[in-house]
Design a protein around this nucleic acid. Structure first.
Lengths: 247, 247
DNA sequence: CCAGAATTCAAACGAACGTTTAAACGATTG
DNA sequence: CAATCGTTTAAACGTTCGTTTGAATTCTGG
């Protein structure tokens, strides 16, 4: 085992590495981590099978590289934007809407940019969130830790009346809705009569999602669900209370 | 190929099938579909390796059986509850809150019932939503089609001022937040200082989620995100506009 | 221009996968 | 009891997987 090599600036290998990253991003997006083989990636990228292990070490490290390449700059943008807003509104705390904007805008920006993976990458990211593989969960936690902490603090200042615990919940819901919405755009076509173009337009999607989540975030504290009136256990059997249905 | 056999009521085989289902549910929950091998399932269930193919036909059909066993009754409960509410409030349309209750209560009921898989199953379901495998997506679409249509119509009557398209989006967000929240409860521990007990209590989770989504659902129509003030491309570099920060 | 490092390449490795097979088993039935 | 049918069993099948190897090749610095 000769150890990992740090390639200086050369011509060809850069192209190989980049081609692997692009192809891997596309295939991971389409089939998920487990179901995407290194052979499929290297074949599509027109590189040798061993190239992945040579340049990245392992399949897992390749996956992390695919994520980091886009995720790291995006989270940096989010933090920079939040900082910018904080300076602008100081000493007043930044409003919820602008915090949400700082969270969503970089994602929206990425979704629009085809040269940075466009919609595909965000979908891959959304799926990674729900992936059971421990190395993926650990990786995402590390990548997100700083950003989440900063945004949580900002929300806390914007919603001072909200208990810390409740804020945690709501932030959890926001990240969940964001991730899922990006990941599963084609799973629930049945919900919408949206045109296919609209369904794949993550930018429009994010613009719709933000006000929805803003309302939930700012909603007053409420008590829980009403208790069950009576759970009907037998499926299909419709109890004919009140006027019976004809036929 | 002697064709699939319909087992009449016998003693032992029922136990085998049930043991496979229970074990598969647990393992699929923990590692996902692809990463769970039939060998792991059959070993843990103390049955022969060939038992899965004998009783279910294939690994995919086993997975569908695992889902159907819980999902079908739950969706039937949802529909029955909605029907019940509709009868109770007729001729007035059912309010949003009660529709949401009809959607969440059966899930909450399932989460509480350890004998029906408890939290585990809902987490498995949430992950299935984001799974790229076509057979899973197709299966979920079929299973959910009727229920989604009924609930969408109900929401449409409760929110008559909302354009159909906007309603589709919001319903999409609701299902997304619900699925993701159930699936990824341990992925984002960093968001919350919730005790581990609370994190695994899907019932409490659903009770928190419902009011949050209700607020978003009922929110007035809004225009999109504010346009970008300026995306900062360089990470880390903080531009000192306005008063410069000390230090 | 040549020594040496970096990269590519074809081939193979061992392990794990889902599925199939054919025989053995065990309870039910005529 | 013998025949039968559903079930279980152990073994094997053919594939595919991620990774490793060692030689060939390409590029680079002195």
């Amino acid at each position: 085992m000769p150890g990992k090599v740090i390639p200086l600036l050369r011509r060809v290998p850069v192209a190989t590495k980049a081609r692997i990253l692009d192809t891997a991003e596309s295939l991971f997006m389409e089939h998920g981590f487990e179901a995407t083989s290194l052979r499929a990636i290297t074949t599509d990228a027109n590189v040798n099978l061993a190239a992945v292990n040579y340049h990245f070490g392992s399949k897992e490290e390749l996956f992390q590289s695919v994520l980091t390449r886009r995720l790291d700059p995006m989270n940096q943008q989010r933090l920079a934007l939040l900082t910018q807003f904080e300076h602008a509104s100081a000493p007043e705390p930044v409003g919820c809407e602008r915090i949400l904007t700082a969270l969503f805008l970089p994602a929206l920006d990425l979704a629009r940019d085809r040269s940075r993976g466009g919609d595909n990458f965000l979908r891959l990211l959304g799926r990674a969130y729900a992936d059971p593989a421990p190395f993926i969960r650990q990786f995402l936690s590390d990548q997100y830790a700083e950003m989440i902490a900063r945004f949580k603090a900002a929300f806390g200042r914007a919603l001072p009346w909200l208990p810390k615990k409740e804020l945690s919940w709501r932030l959890h819901f926001i990240m969940g809705a964001l991730s899922y919405t990006l990941a599963a755009t084609d799973a629930l076509k049945l919900i919408a009569e949206l045109t296919p173009r609209q369904l794949n337009d993550d930018a429009a999607l994010l613009r719709r999602l933000a006000p929805f989540l803003l309302a939930g975030l700012q909603s007053p504290l409420a008590e829980g669900l009403e208790s069950a009136p009576e759970i009907v256990r037998e499926p299909g059997r419709e109890r004919a209370r009140g006027r019976p249905r004809k036929r």
